[in-house]
Simulated scan of single mutants.
Amino acid sequence: MLNQRAAIIFLLGALAGIGTGCLTLLATNPWPVAVTAGAATAAAAVLFFDRIIE
């Protein structure tokens, strides 16, 4: 079971990744590029929010 802090961090990371993937697709890039950009953003966002949210 996740605590509330971990759930918020993963939620924000997922939202950042989904947003990046959607914007990348809207910029007429192929879907593998969008998935890669979204996954990279999600990973970076989780690390970022883990440091920021105490």
Rank of each mutant, 00 (worst) to 15 (best):
L11C: 09
D50P: 02
P30T: 12
T24P: 03
Q4C: 09
A37G: 00
A7T: 00
A44I: 05
L23M: 14
A45T: 08
N29D: 09
A39K: 00
C22Y: 13
A34P: 02
L12V: 01
T41R: 01
E54S: 11
A40Q: 03
A6M: 12
L26W: 15
M1T: 11
G21E: 10
I53H: 10
L26V: 04
A44E: 02
F48Y: 10
T28R: 15
I53L: 15
A6D: 14
V33L: 14
I18T: 06
A43N: 06
T41L: 08
T36M: 13
L2W: 15
L12K: 04
W31F: 05
T28G: 04
T20F: 11
F49H: 12
R5T: 06
V46H: 01
W31V: 09
A6K: 06
F10A: 10
G13C: 13
T24M: 13
T24H: 12
L26M: 11
F48E: 00
T41V: 07
A34W: 07
V35E: 07
A6V: 09
I8M: 14
D50F: 09
V46Q: 00
I8R: 11
L26R: 11
L11P: 01
A42H: 06
T20Q: 07
L23Q: 12
T36I: 03
W31I: 12
R5K: 11
A43H: 03
A45Y: 11
A43T: 06
F48H: 02
L25W: 13
E54Y: 15
T24C: 12
G17S: 03
A14N: 02
L12E: 01
I52Q: 05
L23C: 13
P32I: 03
